[in-house]
Structure formats: structure tokens, C-alpha cells
């Protein structure tokens, strides 16, 4: 893409100082909940009730994690989470690419109308179709099965699909038409052109779509909580039901004071829930942050 980005140079040292102080201050505010969560989650009950301890635990313990791990049923819900985010993300990546290919490359009649309609679907809050979606899936006998999440993704109606279609649309627009014209003269059909020319050239857009789709599917709890929630529990849904589940597993009448639910245990559970995402983010940081600039979602 375009070669050099323009960044403003700042010469005066005092402006520079203000800038760094601001950036670090904002960074601290961003990190605060994470730091608080990590330190609190390793505090023992004595540390939690001690008002003089704010950051550094005196009696650090991992027992909160042990309890949280049991209540979240991590070995099961982690697999569910991976399954219910990787598969729909893959499906959504390919379906939105194909849809955008059809919309962008073939001068179809009513092209503008369809594009506007695709973007209009983005504006509908999930709640508006929640009730009737549930009715639809229960009529199709799909409630509680992964297909209830995969089918909409396959037909371009997954989580924020409109954004991904727009992203591919803009990306394909940047690819010169001469490539596919040359291939067409050589006798390649449209599907072949899509598969052997468009897709390999669109790897940045594919990667962006996949990773964003992945985290959005992972974190979605409103629709999946209702349609899948009770039979396939993902980590975030297990976290949503944490208090209830905890009370079931450790009734307060039998539990010792060490087992009573406290913020240390709850924040340990929260940290377990986001840990897989944190690890993914650290590995794929460049793809996450630079992707939006590279794929030209913002239009050229």
C-alpha cells in the first residue's frame, strides 16, 4: 500500500513530556482493571479483608484459581469455546469473502441497493431479532446445537458480518481487474478465479476477518447464551453463571469460610476466561492492530 505514513514531529521537549505523561496515564487507566484482577485473584481471604493491602498480597495463594477452575469446568468449557469460535469464524471468513466477491466483481444490477441493505443490517440491535430467532431455531429443532451458530455465519448473517462484507468489498476494489480478465481469457471460470487468484491476493483481509470474527464469536453471550447456553457452555457463559454454579457446588452451609465466594475467586474466574484471548492477542498483535489500516476497511 501507500509507502510512508506521515507522523507529526514534535520538537519542543515540554510538549513531548506532556504527550508521554498523557499516553502513560491513559495506558495505566486501561491496564488498571487487569492489574487489579491479577493481584486480587491471588489474594487469600486474610488479604482480601485486610484494608491496608491494596496491591501486593501478603499471603499469595493459587487456591482461588483451583476453585474457579472447578466451577467453570474449564476443561469442558474451554473446548466448547474454541469449537464455537474457530468454526464459525472460519465459515464467516469464507462466506463473507464469496458474498463480497459476487457483489463487487460482476456489475450485478441493483448493486448499490444490495450494498446499502447489507450495511443497514448492521444497525439492527441483536435484541430486536432475539426472540423470533429463538422461535425460528426451536421450530427448526436447532436450539442447543452448534448449527444455530454456524448456519447464520454460512449465509452471511453472523456476528457483524456486514463489516466483513464491506471490508472484503473495499479490498477487492483495490485489486486490479486485469488479473481476473487475463485468467478469464485463459479459460478459467469465476469460481476458479476466486479460489486461485482472489483468495491468495486477499490474505490480509482474510486474516483480519478471521481474527476479529474469532474474538467476537468467543465473547458473544447474548444470542448464544439464549440459543446454545444451556447445552453448550462456553467460558464466558460459564462466567455469566458463575455465582449460581458456585452456590450449587459449594452450598454456604457446608463450606468453610475459605470456600465462601469472594472477589478473589470471581476475579480468578474472570482472568481464566480472558487468558486464552490474551495469549492469542500477544501472538497475533501485529495482525490485530495493523490489520484495519492495511485492509482499507475505511475506504480509499
Amino acid at each position: 500500500m501507500r509507502g510512508s505514513f506521515y507522523y507529526k514531529y514534535i520538537k519542543s521537549p515540554s510538549t513531548k513530556l506532556v504527550l508521554y505523561v498523557l499516553l502513560i496515564g491513559i495506558g495505566y487507566a486501561y491496564l488498571y482493571p487487569l492489574l487489579y484482577m491479577i493481584t486480587t485473584s491471588i489474594m487469600s481471604v486474610e488479604d482480601l479483608v485486610n484494608p491496608t493491602i491494596r496491591w501486593i498480597p501478603v499471603h499469595p495463594t493459587l487456591s482461588n484459581y483451583k476453585l474457579a477452575w472447578q466451577v467453570l469446568e474449564v476443561s469442558k468449557s474451554l473446548l466448547n469455546s474454541i469449537y464455537l469460535s474457530v468454526v464459525p469464524a472460519l465459515i464467516q471468513t469464507f462466506s463473507t469473502a464469496i458474498i463480497a466477491y459476487g457483489l463487487q466483481r460482476f456489475d450485478i444490477p441493483l448493486k448499490r441497493f444490495w450494498l446499502v441493505l447489507v450495511l443497514a443490517t448492521f444497525l439492527i440491535p441483536a435484541q430486536t431479532t432475539l426472540v423470533t430467532k429463538y422461535m425460528l431455531f426451536s421450530k427448526l429443532k436447532l436450539v442447543g446445537t452448534p448449527l444455530a451458530s454456524f448456519l447464520p455465519a454460512l449465509f452471511g448473517q453472523g456476528i457483524k458480518s456486514a463489516i466483513f462484507i464491506l471490508l472484503f468489498y473495499n479490498f477487492f476494489q483495490m485489486l486490479p481487474k486485469t488479473f481476473d480478465e487475463a485468467a478469464e481469457l485463459d479459460g478459467a471460470g469465476p469460481l476458479r478465479i476466486f479460489w486461485t487468484i482472489m483468495l491468495p491476493l486477499s490474505i490480509p483481509a482474510l486474516v483480519t476477518t478471521f481474527i476479529f470474527s474469532l474474538v467476537w464469536y468467543w465473547n458473544e453471550t447474548l444470542v448464544s447464551g439464549l440459543i446454545l447456553g444451556n447445552s453448550i457452555k462456553t467460558l464466558p457463559i460459564a462466567l455469566r453463571d458463575f455465582i449460581w454454579r458456585y452456590a450449587q457446588m459449594f452450598p454456604s452451609t457446608t463450606g468453610s469460610s475459605a470456600n465462601r465466594l469472594n472477589e478473589g475467586i470471581r476475579l480468578a474466574a474472570t482472568f481464566i476466561t480472558i487468558l486464552p484471548l490474551l495469549i492469542t492477542y500477544l501472538f497475533l498483535q501485529r495482525q490485530f492492530v495493523e490489520s484495519l489500516e492495511r485492509t482499507g476497511i475505511t475506504g480509499e
Binding site: N219, L222, L267, T270, T273, L277, L278, F288
Partner: peptide, 11 residues
Amino acid sequence: VIISGPVVSEL
């Protein structure tokens, strides 16, 4: 990357 309903309400 990490924001979700249950995580925010726990925090």
C-alpha cells in the same frame, strides 16, 4: 479483544 458481557460485569 477481551471485552464481553460477563467479563465486564465481573470487573
